[in-house]
Amino acid sequence: MEAGKEKPAYTKACGIIEMDDADFKRLGAWRNTNVRVTSEYGSVVVKAIQTTQGPHPGLAFIPMGPWANMVISPNTYSTGMPTFKGVPVKVEVAEDEPVLNSLELVRKACKGEI
């Protein structure tokens, strides 16, 4: 993301969750709706889009970036490496909630506003 992380392109590229068609059905949502993704470690609103590199039912993908980092596991198990992958999450429709841009998201999260 060399064009600038404050730009809408970054949100469009990383403020998303890629899901399978089958999972859209289970969720009862259309593609390109905003959803709230919640794990044991946190929660974030992102846009649900149809997976580009599927199929992988039951598996969703948020690209590495501040949105993913709201929900991934910070446990490093003494390796220094947080557990970025394989985090169980719940996805709910959140049509009325906006996807924040990266700077807002991080600032608000740090101030405890979200």
Partner: peptide, 10 residues
């Protein structure tokens, strides 16, 4: 800020 878990960023 973009690559660490949010708990570390805080």
């Amino acid at each position: 800020g973009a690559h660490f878990p949010i708990s570390s960023v805080k």
